[in-house]
Design a protein around this nucleic acid. Structure first.
Length: 603
DNA sequence: GCCGTTTTCGGCCCGACTGTTTTCAGTCG
C-alpha cells in the first residue's frame, strides 16, 4: 500500500476512535478531512515530510497533521494512533459501519453493557438488555437487528456501471407517476464517482396528492426488499440488484443477492436548483459553498439561498423569499462562482475553476477515436468489420485494433506470425473503408521485468502500441514504478493501458509512484490511459488530475471486447472530468491529422 | 485540529426522519 493510502487509513481510524471516546467533534472532523485530503493527494507525501511549509499549504493540513506526516514517514507508525487503540476495543470500529448505529449508541452499549464486537452486540440485542438502555427501545433494537442482517450485503459500494442502470430504471418509475413534473438522479452517481454508496433521486410533484402517490409507488416497486423511511418528502428503500437485471458482465462477481439503498426526495419546483446542489454534493463541496454564502451575508440550504438573519426557524418556513434557488446556475452566480459541473464538486480546490475564462472539460462528443479495442483474433467478440461499423456510426475518425500480445495465452494473444498477418489485413481493410481510418496496433503486455512482449522490429511495424500490465499486479510499489517507467521510456510505446491494473472495489492493483510515472510520460511523450470500462476506470480520477496538472497526454479508450463496451465511454469521460481533463490534452479528442502525426512521430 | 476580506481566538453547515420523548437526541446525507 502506498504511503498516502496507509496514513489516510490510520487517520480515519483515529477519527473513529476519537468519536467513540467522545472527543470534540471538530477535532474528529479535522482528522476525517485530513485523511480524505491525504488519500486524494497526487504526490507521495512522504517525499514532502520534512517540508512543513509545503504540507501546511495543503487545505486541511495544519501544524499538527504536518507533524503526523513527518512522524509516519520516519517511524512508520503514529504514537497517538497506538495510544487510542489501547483505549478502544478494535471490534467497536466495525460496529460504526452498521447503518443506524452511530458513535453515541455504540459508546452507550460499550460502557453500560460491555459490548466490544458484533457478537456482543447480537447477544445484548437478543437477551433484551439493550432495549433497557436510556434512549433505546424495542423499535431501535429491531432496526439494529435488521441492519446487522443487511450490513454484510450492503457493505460494498457499487461500481458506477452497475448503479447507473438501476437509477435509470427507478427514474422511469418515478417519472411515470401522474403529477410528477421533474425527476433526476443526484448524489455521487451524478458526480460520476467510480463507485456509489447509495442512489439519490430528486422529484417535483405538482401537488400533495401526486407526492403521496409518488412515495407509495416508489416504496412499493419491484425489487424493493425493505422500506427504511417513509415521510412526506423523503422515502428510503433498499432494492436488490437481481430485480434490475444488473450484473457485472465479463467479470464474475458474487453479487447475486446484493442490495443498494435508493433515496427519494420530493422538493418544491422553486427549490430545484438548490436541492440538486444539496443532494449532488459532495458534502464537503456543499460545506464550502455554505461558508461562502455566510461570508456574503447569506445562508444556503436545500430550499435556496436566503438572506441571513438571526432567527432559529429555517427561512423557508417563515416565508422568506430566496435570492436564488430555481436553478444551479442561479445559485452559483449569486455566490460569484462559475457554474461547476457535478464531476468536479469534491472540495479539491474547484471553487476557483472557471474564474479566468471558460471552463471547458472533456465531453463524450469530443471523443473521435478509440485506440484500444479487441476483435475475435484475440478475446474480443466482434470482427474488425463489425467494430469498425460501430466506431464509424459513432462519428469516430480513427479506430485502432489492438489485440493481445503473445504472452496473454488465456486471451488468445497473437504470435508474431499471426500479428504480421493481422497488420496486413487491417491495412488492406483500411484501404477498402471510407469515413474512418483503421490502424493496426497491439495491446502489448508489459512483462514483470518491464520489457515488452514483442521485439522492437515487430513493434516498429505497428501504427499504435498500447503497453499494459496484466500479470504481477501484486508487486511492491518500488518494483511497480520501475517496471512501468521502463515501458514509458520505450521509444516505440504510445500509450500505457490501464496503468495500475486495479479493479474498482475488487482489486487494488499496482501502486506505483504516480508522480514519477507522469513526469516520465511527459518527458517521453507517452499518453496514460483512462480505461473507460467501469470495472477498471484506470487511471482513476485523482491520477488524472495529477497528470493534467503536469501537462501529460491522456487517452480515453473503451478497451472494446463486446459491442456494448463502446457505451462505457461515458464512464471514462466522467473520470476525465473529475481529473479536470480538457480536450487539448486528450489524444482521442484531437483532429485526425494531429492524432496521426503524433502516432507516426514515434515511428 | 484547522483557519482568517471583521478574527491568531473562537468559531467551525443545515435539515429530515425516527424513536423515545413531553421538547429532543441520534443518525444520516
Amino acid at each position: 500500500m502506498g504511503f498516502n493510502t496507509e496514513l489516510a487509513g490510520l487517520l480515519d481510524e483515529m477519527a473513529a476512535m476519537l468519536e467513540l471516546l467522545g472527543a470534540n467533534r471538530f477535532r474528529v472532523n479535522a482528522h476525517q478531512k485530513a485523511a480524505r485530503v491525504i488519500k486524494d493527494h497526487p504526490t507521495d507525501l512522504s517525499t514532502l515530510a520534512e517540508d512543513e511549509k509545503a504540507l501546511t499549504a495543503i487545505d486541511g493540513i495544519g501544524k499538527g497533521m504536518a507533524e503526523k506526516i513527518r512522524e509516519f514517514a520516519s517511524d512508520e507508525c503514529l504514537a497517538e494512533h497506538d495510544e487510542l487503540l489501547s483505549k478502544v476495543p478494535a471490534g467497536l470500529l466495525r460496529l460504526l459501519r452498521v447503518p443506524g448505529l452511530g458513535p453515541k449508541k455504540i459508546k452507550l452499549l460499550w460502557e453500560e453493557l460491555g459490548v466490544e464486537s458484533v457478537e456482543d452486540l447480537r447477544r445484548v440485542l437478543d437477551d433484551g438488555s439493550a432495549a433497557e438502555l436510556k434512549g433505546m427501545g424495542a423499535k431501535t433494537v429491531e432496526n439494529i437487528k435488521d441492519s446487522l442482517e443487511f450490513a454484510s450485503k450492503a457493505d460494498r459500494r457499487l461500481p458506477i456501471g452497475m448503479a447507473r442502470p438501476i437509477a435509470e430504471a427507478m427514474l422511469e418509475r418515478v417519472r411515470g407517476v401522474k403529477g410528477v413534473t421533474r425527476a433526476e438522479y443526484a448524489g455521487s452517481l451524478r458526480r460520476g464517482k467510480e463507485s456509489i454508496g447509495d442512489i439519490d433521486i430528486l422529484a417535483v410533484a405538482k401537488d400533495e396528492k401526486a407526492a403521496q402517490a409518488l412515495g407509495e409507488t416508489f416504496r412499493g416497486g419491484d425489487g424493493v426488499v425493505k422500506v427504511l423511511a417513509a415521510g412526506d418528502t423523503k422515502s428510503s428503500v433498499r432494492v436488490e440488484l437481481a430485480a434490475f437485471g444488473v450484473s457485472s458482465n465479463r467479470w464474475v462477481l458474487d453479487d447475486s443477492d446484493q442490495t443498494v439503498q435508493v433515496d427519494l426526495r420530493i422538493v418544491p419546483a422553486e427549490s430545484w436548483g438548490a436541492a440538486m446542489m444539496y443532494f449532488t454534493g459532495s458534502k464537503e463541496h456543499n460545506v464550502k459553498l455554505r461558508e461562502r454564502a455566510l461570508a456574503r451575508g447569506l445562508t444556503l440550504n436545500e430550499y435556496g439561498l436566503f438572506p441571513e438573519d438571526d432567527e432559529d426557524t429555517p427561512p423557508q418556513q417563515r416565508g422568506v423569499k430566496p435570492v436564488a434557488g430555481k436553478s444551479e446556475a442561479e445559485v452559483y452566480a449569486r455566490l460569484e462562482l462559475a457554474e461547476l459541473p457535478p464531476t468536479v464538486r469534491e472540495d479539491r480546490g474547484e471553487l476557483g475553476l472557471g474564474e479566468d475564462g471558460e471552463l471547458r472539460l472533456i465531453r463524450v462528443e469530443d471523443i473521435r477515436a478509440d485506440l484500444h479495442t479487441h476483435t475475435t483474433e484475440s478475446d474480443g467478440r466482434m470482427s474488425l468489420e463489425e467494430s469498425a461499423a460501430i466506431a464509424k456510426e459513432r462519428g469516430f475518425h480513427t479506430l485502432a485494433i489492438t489485440d493481445h500480445s503473445k504472452s496473454s495465452a488465456v486471451a488468445n494473444g497473437l504470435s508474431v506470425e499471426r500479428l504480421r498477418k493481422q497488420i496486413e489485413t487491417i491495412h488492406e481493410a483500411d484501404k477498402q473503408t471510407t469515413g474512418i481510418s483503421l490502424l493496426a496496433g497491439s495491446e502489448v503486455d508489459i512483462l514483470v521485468d518491464g520489457s515488452l512482449d514483442y521485439d522492437d522490429d515487430v513493434l516498429a511495424e505497428l501504427d499504435v502500441v498500447v503497453a499494459s500490465p496484466h500479470v504481477g499486479l501484486k508487486a511492491k510499489p518500488a518494483q511497480a514504478t520501475k517496471r512501468l517507467l521502463k515501458a514509458i521510456e520505450h521509444p516505440l510505446v504510445h500509450i500505457i493501458g490501464h496503468p495500475t491494473g486495479r479493479l474498482v472495489e475488487r482489486r487494488p492493483g499496482l501502486e506505483p509512484a504516480m508522480d514519477e510515472l507522469i513526469a516520465a510520460a511527459v518527458e517521453h511523450d507517452v499518453a496514460l490511459e483512462i480505461n473507460a470500462h467501469w470495472m477498471r476506470l484506470d487511471l482513476r480520477d485523482t491520477h488524472v488530475r495529477a497528470a493534467v496538472e503536469a501537462g501529460c497526454k491522456i487517452a480515453i479508450d473503451c478497451d472494446v471486447h463486446h459491442a456494448e463496451d463502446y457505451d462505457n465511454l461515458i464512464y471514462g469521460v466522467l473520470t476525465g472530468q473529475r481529473g479536470w481533463l480538457t480536450p487539448d490534452l486528450c489524444v482521442n479528442a484531437w483532429p485526425k491529422k494531429k492524432l496521426h502525426d503524433w502516432l507516426s512521430s514515434k515511428r
